[in-house]
Simulated scan of single mutants.
Amino acid sequence: MSEITEPPGGEDCRCPMHTSGGEGASRCSPGSRQSDGIFIDSVYKACAYGDVDKLHQMVENKPSLVNEPDPQGYYCLQWGALNNRVAVCSYLIEKGADINAADSTGQTALHWSAVRGSLAAAETLLRASADVEKPDSRGYTVCHVASQYGQTSFLYHLALHWNADYEKADADGRTPLHWAAYKGYGDIIRLLIFMDVSIDRKDKEGPPRRPLPRHPSPAASSLPLLSAPRCSPQ
Score class of each variant (00 low, 15 high):
Glu3Asn: 07
Ile4Phe: 06
Ile4Trp: 08
Thr5Gly: 09
Glu11Arg: 12
Glu11Ala: 14
Glu11Pro: 02
His18Lys: 14
Thr19Glu: 14
Ser20Asp: 12
Ser20Phe: 12
Cys28Phe: 13
Cys28Thr: 10
Ser32Ala: 10
Ser35Val: 14
Gly37Cys: 13
Ile38Gly: 06
Phe39Ile: 13
Ile40Gln: 09
Tyr44Asp: 07
Ala46Pro: 13
Ala46Met: 08
Asp51Gln: 08
His56Thr: 03
Glu60Ile: 03
Ser64Gly: 08
Gly73Phe: 10
Trp79Ser: 00
Arg85Asp: 03
Cys89Leu: 07
Cys89Ser: 05
Tyr91His: 03
Lys95Pro: 05
Asn100Trp: 15
Ala109Tyr: 12
Val115Pro: 00
Val115Tyr: 00
Gly117Asp: 00
Leu119Phe: 08
Leu119Ala: 09
Ala120Thr: 08
Glu123Val: 14
Lys134Ser: 08
Asp136Pro: 06
Gly139Thr: 11
Ser147Ala: 13
Gln148Arg: 13
Tyr149Val: 03
Leu155Asp: 05
His161Phe: 10
Trp162Asp: 11
Asn163Trp: 04
Tyr166Ser: 12
Lys168Phe: 00
Gly173Gln: 10
Trp179Tyr: 08
Lys183Trp: 04
Gly186Pro: 02
Ile188Tyr: 10
Ile193Thr: 03
Met195Ile: 04
Arg209Tyr: 14
Arg209His: 07
Pro213Leu: 15
Ser217Arg: 10
Pro224Asn: 07
Pro229Trp: 10
Pro233Asp: 00
Gln234Asp: 09
Gln234His: 08
